[in-house]
Write a protein that binds this DNA or RNA. Structure first.
Length: 508
RNA sequence: GGCCCGUUCGUCUAGGGGUUAGGACGCAGGAUUUUCAUUCCUGUAACACGGGUUCGAUUCCCGUACGGGCUACCA
């Protein structure tokens, strides 16, 4: 394929959810696979729905994911500006061209008047069957149309959909989708505030930006009939992009597509990044805050609706680019599967190198007030990563490396703590104390403890759980000797010493 | 309601006129492990229904049911 140009075109109406990220990802993958161009375009033609910060959020989210646009606001490019509000002056001429060619008309019906029609007739549609009895340049004398416009009366331009044609939408995922034009309404192209609607702006910009493939959610399929008509009436049919309408991501339970409310309701993230709304109810944690690695989230999302046809499931971005194709995208909606998302993250955490993990874990520790040395942090990550699924678990399972445990597993101490054990414990502590500071290491500690156990004919079960509780508060945790090495000699000994009276207290 | 799209294990999916319908998540059991995890093994479970077409349909066609989307001067 030659000169592929694709765009991700979100509206800045709030946080971008996971479905949007997946759309961006598929666009990105197709572009990169063919050496094409990935464009970000902000579709902010509806001033009433504009949310401050939403555009920044979109860009930050894309950056976090590593899905950097080749062109877009803040990214440059030869086809800008990339915000529709800054392209406002471009659209009217095309709407007027449509009128001049007899494919659109001025309409004066107010929103209230149309609402009234809809109340009266649930199936009311501004279209072929009704346009001749409404207030527009098709029914009014030309002089009156001029007069009304001159008087400053509000007007819109509507597309005049043909009465009886078959409109065929070619779609790479679904084949040909056919609409009867009489079912299509006369969509508004230019609003009374002078702004274009999505339909006009989208087609004009896709044309002007030389977009070759439109990859977007399935919710756009029903209006694509209008879009095809628009390309035709504007004389751009030869340049019409190829369409690919993606299956939607559905709620994990119940009915309907995934919505931001589902996140709060089910305690799962539906946004890449957190979003601070005006109220707690409007604020959400994202995949980032839940502790996902962006690569893992992307790998997961790639598979919600797409599959390479092989049994490989873990893909780096370059591998995804290599394997991706629109033909492999499924047709049916995919239920959001958070368990699978966590599994992906676990796979990535397990195999990530320590330095990479450290960059994600450091901020976590810093919020707790700790600023570990890089080498220590990396060892920490290496020691714990096998039992971590979500990043915050590094703290939950490893806090004792930084601070004394808050709770101790008294029950398990009570089961094992008696005079004999106490004596052995004390002796072992002294044996460990005898290791030179600069000799303190996992193998050395291991060897020392092993010899001690051999000498006293002890099984691991006799002392290990108690050592764990003394050091970490719990019988669970990473490999004991690795734990001791990382903790260091002084802390290890100090905790063993202080455990003695504490354990005595548990059985008293 | 109308229009459009879809339907393989609970979930994500592979497959495709003749297969023991494959994988993954989850769940259950087992092995390894000083603990907890990890890892490994085993098991669990699906072609929505009814008609065609065909020697033969899960696969093709038509209906039905169910699910989803759209139906704004929102995108």
């Amino acid at each position: 394929m030659e000169n592929i140009r694709v765009r991700f075109a979100p509206s800045p109406t709030g946080a971008l959810h996971i479905g949007g990220i997946r759309t961006a990802l598929y666009n990105y993958l197709l572009a990169k696979k063919h050496g094409g161009t990935f464009i970000l375009r902000i579709e902010d033609t509806d001033q009433s729905r504009y949310v401050p910060g939403a555009e920044e959020y979109i860009i930050e989210a894309l950056r976090w994911c590593g899905l950097l646009p080749d062109e877009g606001p803040e990214f440059g490019g030869d086809y800008g500006p990339y915000r529709q509000s800054e392209r406002k002056h471009l659209y009217a001429q095309y709407a007027e061209q449509l009128v001049a060619n007899g494919h659109a008309y001025y309409a004066f019906d107010t929103a209230e008047a149309l609402d009234a029609h809809r109340v009266q007739d649930k199936t009311f549609k501004y279209g072929a069957a009704t346009r001749l009895r409404l207030t527009n340049s098709l029914t009014l004398p030309a002089s009156e149309v001029q007069q009304r416009i001159a008087n400053g009366e509000p007007w819109v331009i509507r597309l005049q959909v043909p009465d009886n044609e078959l409109v065929v939408v070619p779609d790479l995922i679904r084949g040909e989708v056919t609409f009867r034009s009489k079912e299509l309404d006369d969509k508004v192209m230019l609003k009374s505030d002078g702004m274009p609607t999505y339909h006009l702006a989208n087609i004009v910009d896709d044309y002007l930006m030389r977009i070759t493939h439109v990859i977007r959610g399935e919710e756009w399929l029903p209006s694509t009939g209008h879009h095809v008509l628009l390309y035709r009436y504007l004389g751009w049919e030869a340049a019409m992009p190829q369409f690919a309408h993606l299956p939607l991501i559905l709620k994990p339970d119940g009915k309907g597509k995934l919505s931001k409310r589902d996140g709060a309701r089910l305690g799962i993230p539906v946004f890449p990044l957190g979003w601070a709304g005006d109220t707690p109810e409007e604020s959400f944690q994202g995949f980032r805050e839940f502790g996902f690695l962006p690569q893992a989230m992307l790998n997961f999302l790639a598979f919600q609706g797409w599959n390479p046809g092989t049994e490989q499931e873990i893909f780096t971005i370059p591998e995804l680019i290599e394997a991706f194709s629109l033909e492999k995208i499924g047709k049916s909606g995919a239920r959001f599967d958070f368990e699978k998302a966590k599994w992906y993250n676990q796979q990535y955490v397990h195999t990530a190198d320590a330095a990479t993990l450290a960059t994600f874990v450091r901020p976590l520790l810093e919020t707790k007030g700790y600023h570990p040395e890089p080498a220590f942090l990396e060892s920490f990550c290496t020691l714990l990563r096998e039992r971590v699924t979500l990043l915050p678990e590094f703290w939950e399972k490893g806090a004792f490396f930084f601070t004394e445990p808050k709770e101790y597993d008294a029950k398990n101490v009570q089961k094992r703590w008696d005079a004999t054990t106490r004596n052995l414990f004390e002796q072992l502590t002294d044996t460990l104390r005898a290791i030179a500071d600069n000799q303190w290491s996992e193998p050395r500690v291991h060897q020392t403890v092993q010899e001690f156990m051999d000498q006293h004919e002890l099984k691991p079960g006799a002392l290990f759980p108690l050592l764990r509780i003394a050091l970490a508060g719990s019988t669970q945790g990473p490999a004991l000797f690795g734990m001791m090495e990382l903790l260091g000699k002084s802390k290890t000994i100090a905790r063993l010493d202080s455990a003695l009276p504490r354990f005595d207290g548990f059985v008293a």
